[in-house]
Amino acid sequence: ASVAVIAAGTQGNIFATSALRSMRFLQILRMVRMDRRGGTWKLLGSVVYAHSKELITAWYIGFLVLIFASFLVYLAEKDANSDFSSYADSLWWGTITLTTIGYGDKTPHTWLGRVLAAGFALLGISFFALPAGILGSGFALKVQEQHRQKHFEKRRMPAANLIQAAWRLYSTDMSRAYLTATWYYYDSILPSFRELALLFEHVQRARNGGLRPLEVRRAPVPDGAPSRYPPVATCHRPGSTSFCPGESSRMGIKDRIRMGSSQRRTGPSKQHLAPPTMPTSPSSEQVGEATSPTKVQKSWSFNDRTRFRASLRLKPRTSAEDAPSEEVAEEKSYQCELTVDDIMPAVKTVIRSIRILKFLVAKRKFKETLRPYDVKDVIEQYSAGHLDMLGRIKSLQTRVDQIVGRGPGDRKAREKGDKGPSDAEVVDEISMMGRVVKVEKQVQSIEHKLDLLLGFYSRCLRSGTSASLGAVQVPLFDPDITSDYHSPVDHEDISVSAQTLSISRSVSTNMD
């Protein structure tokens, strides 16, 4: 405001104040949320940038038409019409005319000016109207692209899951042992070998009828009888010197917790746990005396209480009078009846079946994303299906024409109403129809010849004498029936064969 007042002088105070007050009108834009329509302006900018070359070309040609039209109309009207006294007036008329506004304040009066105005109007309006069409088509394409992008975003994750499931299904095939990355992934998420051994031990116990592997080994086996189970490696608790092959000598807290839970599941009659010990102070733990958990001091820290809870689970003690015997301790020893080589084939089979199920689920979810969402998608899918159906029908028609023997030239002739090819031409065609016709002709010829021969033979049998045999009239074959199959017997006289037959029969009768 200060700059405006200084620039306008003393009389500019009122002007500056009114100008600043008129800017209050811009507050109405906040009512229509114009300040939060950044996406709309961004869309407009992207459309203009995408079609910038077309817009520049249309505007450039339109500007050239405007300059030439205004100049030529000015030359034609400057002497006869006072409205075109300057080139600026003519340029104003050209702008209003070519933009199809047409105020009518300035019009050419001479015939030359009117002809020039009409010609440049028809030429220039087309170029001035091009930017509107370019922007409209650009907006339509952009909206369609955003629509497809939205659908693509919805299909991206199911497609990625389907590709991942397909690759993992491919890589978990037993015949592709060189693909090891997927197996490394499952090695990292699978439970430890100790848990798998416990699982298979329970399965084997159920197969043995509820007997433990130790009891199965204690059962008497006759001499020479084959053992029911192959000899396997035996594993004891981590306190002993022997372990399962492939295990580490260090046992983690999870393994100890699972070991304690498995020992508690063996039965309360074979294992008696004394009350857990509780320390009397955060600094020292008295293991010899058993106290109640309700006497825990409230001033303990979080670490002390955590250690106390761990001691409740991981440090059970047995009383002296209830101490288990050596046999019970041997039964409680952890027996590992299986090795990694025995378990891994079954584990890989389970993983393979899981990968198949996940692949089928991913495939079903991806197919669900291909379903249409709204009416536009339904129409688009219907149009695509219609085009596909037309293509299939056209391909089927082409194959039928190839089989029947109607080529493209014959199809055009039928469409024009011309006469089709004759039967002889159809026979000569190298097509399925021509071959079928040729075979039918040959079969008819053979059938006719057989009928003639059978009739001749029956007449010979009825006559009974050589004289009557020679008097029999043998009809000749019709050459038209034989089609294109020409037998060497067709052109010979059958009477010669009949005479030869009669001579042979007379000779045979004389010999008798």
Rank of each mutant, 00 (worst) to 15 (best):
K376Q: 04
D342H: 04
S463T: 12
V340M: 07
A346P: 00
R355K: 03
G391A: 12
T318P: 10
T398A: 11
R205L: 02
T180K: 11
R459P: 13
V507F: 13
V296E: 11
I354S: 01
S495Y: 10
S281F: 03
D451E: 07
V378L: 12
Y185F: 04
E380Q: 03
Q335H: 05
V203A: 02
S431N: 08
D341G: 15
G239V: 14
R258H: 02
G260D: 14
V439G: 13
E380A: 09
Q271R: 14
R307G: 11
R406W: 09
E415G: 13
P220Q: 05
S466A: 15
L453R: 12
E331K: 08
P408R: 05
E215D: 09
D493H: 09
E425A: 13
Y229D: 10
P245A: 02
I403S: 07
A225E: 07
Y485D: 10
A233P: 04
S468I: 15
S284I: 13
W183S: 13
K254N: 02
H486N: 06
P231L: 01
E327G: 06
L312V: 05
I430M: 04
H202N: 07
P245R: 10
R250G: 14
L169R: 06
R459G: 12
P479S: 15
L190I: 10
D451N: 07
Y184N: 08
N303I: 06
A320D: 06
P245S: 06
G455D: 02
A290S: 13
S497P: 07
R462C: 08
S248T: 09
S508T: 14
D322E: 09
T339A: 01
N208D: 03
S292I: 02
Y170F: 05
K376N: 13
A219E: 00
S269Y: 05
M251L: 02
L190F: 07
Q286H: 10
Q286L: 12
K419Q: 05
Q297K: 13
R435P: 01
V496I: 15
D490V: 09
S508R: 02
G420E: 06
S242C: 12
S395R: 13
P231A: 13
A274T: 05
L360M: 06
I481M: 13
K254R: 06
D187A: 11
P213A: 11
R313I: 15
G224A: 12
K419N: 14
I351F: 02
P282R: 12
Q402K: 07
I189T: 02
L314I: 15
R307H: 13
A165D: 10
R194T: 13
L190R: 01
V287M: 06
K412M: 08
D451H: 04
F359Y: 02
M389T: 01
G405A: 02
S445P: 01
T172N: 05
V203E: 06
E330Q: 10
L179M: 03
T180S: 12
I446V: 05
L452R: 07
R462P: 11
Q263E: 08
Y485C: 14
S248C: 11
S192F: 06
P282T: 06
R228H: 11
Y170C: 05
T482P: 12
M511K: 08
R364T: 05
M259I: 04
T180A: 10
G385C: 12
E429Q: 01
I379T: 08
H386D: 01
F193S: 01
R317H: 08
R462L: 10
P191T: 09
L199M: 15
P213S: 09
K449N: 12
Y457H: 01
T180P: 11
F193I: 14
S333N: 04
L273R: 15
F243S: 11
Q271K: 15
S463Y: 12
A165V: 10
D451G: 10
A181P: 15
A233V: 11
A320T: 09
M251K: 14
D484V: 14
E447G: 11
H491N: 12
G455V: 04
E201Q: 06
D341A: 01
T318N: 15
K449E: 00
C336R: 09
K298T: 15
H448L: 01
T234A: 05
L461R: 15
I189M: 10
R352C: 01
A219G: 08
S175C: 09
K363T: 02
N208Y: 06
V474A: 09
A424S: 13
Y229N: 07
T234N: 03
R176L: 02
V443L: 03
I430V: 14
G267D: 14
S283T: 13
T280P: 13
I356M: 06
A166V: 05
H202P: 11
S319A: 13
D341N: 11
E425V: 09
L179P: 14
S353F: 06
S483T: 15
V232L: 12
Q499E: 15
V347L: 06
S506P: 15
S301N: 14
V437A: 03
A346T: 01
Q335E: 01
P293S: 07
G420R: 02
T369S: 02
S431R: 04
G464C: 05
V361L: 00
V216A: 13
N510H: 09
S299G: 08
Y382H: 10
Q263H: 13
A424T: 05
V489G: 13
S333I: 07
S333G: 11
S353P: 02
L469M: 11
E195K: 12
L387Q: 15
F200S: 15
V378I: 09
I351M: 04
F477Y: 12
R399W: 02
S188C: 01
A225P: 05
Q402H: 14
I343L: 08
S483F: 08
S248G: 03
N510D: 09
Q402R: 13
K254I: 15
C244Y: 09
H491L: 15
S281C: 03
K348R: 02
I503M: 02
Q381H: 01
T234S: 08
L338V: 04
S504P: 04
D223N: 05
R462G: 03
G209A: 14
Y485H: 08
Q444L: 05
L454V: 05
S508I: 15
A206T: 05
L357V: 01
Q381P: 05
A177V: 01
G246V: 02
E425Q: 05
P213T: 03
Q204E: 01
G260V: 07
D428G: 04
D342V: 05
V216L: 03
F193L: 13
D490N: 01
D377N: 08
S269C: 14
S283R: 11
L454F: 02
E492A: 11
Y186D: 11
S497C: 14
S458W: 01
I253V: 09
A310S: 02
Y382C: 07
V378F: 01
S325A: 06
S281T: 15
H272Y: 06
L314V: 15
D223H: 06
L198V: 02
R205Q: 04
M259T: 04
R264L: 10
G407R: 11
R406G: 08
R435C: 00
Y178S: 08
R364G: 07
D478H: 14
R205W: 05
P488H: 09
R313K: 00
S395G: 12
K416Q: 01
D304G: 14
P279H: 07
H236R: 11
G470R: 12
R256H: 14
